[in-house]
């Protein structure tokens, strides 16, 4: 019974627009250093707390903490530095591509991924700018589809003007319907 309405015209894959041949645009050159700075500040904050606990005078600490302190501190420094380095290199690799009909965002260093969002399926668009991003003149573009909040398409680290242009491009796209 499943044959009745079934058509199966062959489509040559070679004629389709190819996601492997995307023209990737880099994020703002300020994005990776900024992220590195934020990460460093966070790491320093953690280290300061560890040290503050070690050398404060109000509480007596358990022995194991005093013994293991150099190990914990050193370990955190090593892991933190590795993490910062990985993040920095990964940030450098992030990029996005815009085609007539869809947006793509590429990320990851060891685990690489490419997310593609057809503009036709966009429900609404948001520009997000945290305090640090505002200072640096950057913005994050968030694109929501019916796929749910788990699958919000986001491009971080866009120069503000580009982000606005991109937002306008999506909103004025003929396929973005008003009612979703």
């Amino acid at each position: 019974m499943s044959q009745i309405l079934f058509t199966n015209q062959s489509l040559s894959v070679h004629n389709l627009a190819d996601v492997t041949a995307l023209e990737m645009q880099r994020l703002s050159p300020r994005y990776a250093p900024l992220n590195l700075l934020c990460g460093t500040i966070f790491l320093l904050f953690l280290l300061t707390i560890l040290a503050a606990i070690r050398w404060q005078t109000w509480l007596t600490l358990p022995d194991w903490y005093l013994h293991l302190f150099p190990l914990i501190f050193g370990g955190l420094v090593a892991v933190g530095l590795l993490w910062l380095l990985y993040d920095y290199l990964a940030d450098k690799r992030k990029g996005y591509a815009v085609r007539e009909q869809d947006l793509s965002y590429q990320s990851g260093l060891f685990f690489q991924s490419l997310v593609t969002q057809p503009i036709l399926r966009v429900q609404h668009v948001e520009l997000k700018r945290g305090p640090i991003e505002r200072k640096a003149g950057l913005a994050t573009l968030q694109v929501f589809s019916a796929g749910g909040s788990l699958y919000t398409f986001a491009i971080p680290g866009l120069p503000e003007a580009d982000a606005r242009k991109l937002r306008q491009f999506i909103l004025s796209h003929s396929d973005v319907s008003q009612d979703g």
């Binding site: 060891f110 490419l114 969002q117 796929g147 699958y151």
Partner: peptide, 28 residues
């Protein structure tokens, strides 16, 4: 389909493999 995701680790890339995710309004 609402969104697609193509992903691979470097090891998968070397052996020519990938994972794909298809996002629909009922989940992925």
């Amino acid at each position: 389909i609402q969104q697609t995701r193509f992903s691979q680790s470097l090891l998968m890339k070397r052996s020519g493999l990938c994972s794909i995710k298809l996002v629909l309004a009922c989940g992925a």
